[in-house]
Nucleic acid binder design. Structure first.
Lengths: 225, 225
DNA sequence: AGAATAGTGTCTCTAAGACAGTATGAT
DNA sequence: ATCATACTGTCTTAGAGACACTATTCT
């Protein structure tokens, strides 16, 4: 079980990494990897419970958006022999991020997603796995409300658009974005505004913190390869 | 490892089932199930090789379209205890179907997909797994060229549209369908026509038997839930 | 000629893209 | 008043849906 936990921190898409133990008998000692671990047959009812448990242990978060990315298995991915892993990706709000570095801070970090990979070299086949997770995320953002799960409890439309732009790594047209989002039942106005050195913006919240909205059109044709 | 092998036979979407062994020590004896089996660590390089091997054994087919649907694992899906399976779906052309019932015909059959399930009660959690596979297929047909992998080597546009209509279980508008498909690089004309008791139709083949085409719009808004 | 299916012309409709305009707060 | 960001009006464009029309073969 491995997890690609994404969040938007300081205007950048990031993914949570953990450091492999430094013991000699372990493969890839001291190297960065996706958080994960073995299924505990006594406590994990099913794969999703296991992912939720890991998420709580590694990131102290309890109810994020969670989706299966796929499974990787083969003879060559672990030097100890044939192995398989189930991979999930999770999306969490930036304001939950402060909860994260539980314990030893040098063993956990948020890595910047740049293009469709990160700078760090990862253990096992985690570079490939992460690439698949990023690709899944990017492709799906083109035609779903996925970035909404990266938002805090309340946010403005401009903030949501900004998170879309960060995950897609390109700018979007404001009017089209607003019309598209407001045409669905994704958001609900809250009777508050975000103040600043300018006109205050209407705040919204998700109408349903679990429901993913599908749009009938992708944002532009360039989206998929 | 379990497989949902789909094909369109006699104007219906069908999925391949196998009968569980009748031995008493086996769970669900004699019941219908998705074809599958255990990974063979000596011969299977990775999960996909395993899926391809199973596909060859059960359906005698060598290069179909193959896609991971997901994994199912849990304490209650197999009476013998905690277990997990990797599920793939495969699409094959109707004219390869004749190869299928290898050996004992009463142990293998094509079941009709009706709505998003089949009439047969399946072993394990295979009913749920199959439902997920069918849902994935249906959803993806709305915005991809998936049904093209259900076609024989050469086919007409009307035949392709017909297979779309069977997998979606609704009729499509002819002009819109043709424009949509021909606007991509999915198809290539072959210098032949399909004759009949009427005007002959242009035959096409896939330009690339592996490449899935994504459309920027889904067919209608009603598609996803 | 008539039946049958292949294939086109063209209008409407929806939603994205572009972009300029107006609105409303802080300073 | 000025600035900054929020928000809207409206024209253009791409592609789906509807549906009538023409084209080509067989009987």
């Amino acid at each position: 079980m491995d997890l690609a936990i994404f969040s938007v921190v300081e205007d950048a898409l990031r993914v949570l990494l953990v450091r492999r133990p430094d013991a000699h008998e372990e493969p890839f000692p001291g190297q960065w990897a996706l958080p994960g671990g073995f299924i505990d047959l006594r406590v994990d009812q099913d794969l999703e419970s296991c992912a939720l448990r890991k998420l709580k242990e590694k990131a102290g978060i309890s109810a994020p958006y969670l989706e299966q990315v796929g499974s990787w298995g083969g003879a060559s991915r672990d030097p100890r022999g044939w192995s398989a892993t189930h991979v999930y990706f999770a999306l969490m709000a930036s304001d939950d991020v402060s909860l994260v570095p539980g314990g030893n801070a040098s063993d956990v970090k948020w890595a910047n997603v740049d293009g469709n990979r990160i700078r760090e070299k990862l253990a096992f086949d985690h570079t490939e796995i992460l690439k698949a997770a990023i690709t899944r995320l990017r492709n799906k953002v083109e035609y779903t409300s996925l970035p909404a799960f990266l938002m805090p409890a309340e946010f403005t439309l401009s903030e949501l658009q900004h998170v879309y732009e960060i995950t897609l790594d390109r700018s979007l047209e404001k009017k089209a974005f607003r019309t598209r989002v407001l045409a669905t039942d994704l958001l609900e106005e809250v009777p508050r505004r975000r103040a600043g050195a300018n006109r205050p913006a209407q705040l919204f919240k998700l109408r349903n913190r679990k429901h993913l909205v599908y749009f009938s059109r992708a944002l532009t044709s360039g989206g998929r390869q």
